[in-house]
Design a protein around this nucleic acid. Sequence first.
DNA 1: TTCATTTCTTAATCTAGGTTAATGCATTTC
DNA 2: GAAATGCATTAACCTAGATTAAGAAATGAA
Lengths: 155, 155
Amino acid sequence: MKKIALKKGQILQRKGDLGSKIYQVEAGLLRSYSIDEKGKEHIFMFAPEGWIVADNLPKEEPSDLFIDALEDSVVSVIEKDFTGEFDSLKLIRRLSVLQKRVIMLMSSSSLVRYEHFLKTYPDISQRVPQKMIASYLGITPEALSKIRGEQAKRK
Amino acid sequence: MKKIALKKGQILQRKGDLGSKIYQVEAGLLRSYSIDEKGKEHIFMFAPEGWIVADNLPKEEPSDLFIDALEDSVVSVIEKDFTGEFDSLKLIRRLSVLQKRVIMLMSSSSLVRYEHFLKTYPDISQRVPQKMIASYLGITPEALSKIRGEQAKRK
DNA sequence: TTCATTTCTTAATCTAGGTTAATGCATTTC
DNA sequence: GAAATGCATTAACCTAGATTAAGAAATGAA
């Protein structure tokens, strides 16, 4: 299985690439993200060691997302081949996470979403700049800063 | 395979039920939705004829979502059994749709999301009250009404 | 048909979060 | 180690969408 070493900041996949690969993160930290018409980045997910990152698309469809390295990293490249029970369970778990995320985006304030993020991914919140957490939450860095201020006061 | 006939308004699955079943819609229209702490409904998806509706959860985990009938309907009940290539591809397609939805919720205005909904699900928009479309989009019925007013003027 | 219920619209007001901009720190880079 | 770049914070202001409320239109039930 092919392994690739990535320097921090290096781009692994671009929007439009044929997304026939998935990446198993062996070390480091990656993210996937989209860029909207105004050039703004929206982080779709973080992928630390042990996680898999890919565009969630059928094989051979062009990717919607960029993937790059937030730290020096090593990934294993795997051909997309979604067969068998094992993979299906992983897909279900991912669906479950995404379903919760959609519901949160529709029903919860940014404060609630931030606290949920901290609880769910405590280590990632230590490893990335706050503006990236803001991007994941769908808010601006300024709004996140304000939330953190209020949160600190609240004790 | 067991089939169930549902009257409009009838609830097929409640939050907390063990979600070991999936439902194939043979006729009619269902929806899945969550209810937040304030008692507000948030529609997660609509499921017309030919679609499958279920909580996207591993077998035997308690459901997050309610499912009910928006029209008199008939569904086939299927045991969750996510194995084989066939199902995996369906799961991937669903992931792809959810991924796009997350990105839209993070990056697009409610007008853009509404127009995307109309384009993607033209028939559903004819079959459900507008307040349900609003709920699917994550906005209030009042906000949707305003958007529609502006849209009409704009020509 | 008539009455009741639900749905849609409009308008006034409010608020979470966006935008812009300035400042102070940390990091890279040379 | 100076300069440049990137990051976090704060503050003033702005806007999309929420809330509240009331009336009009549609749907359904008796």
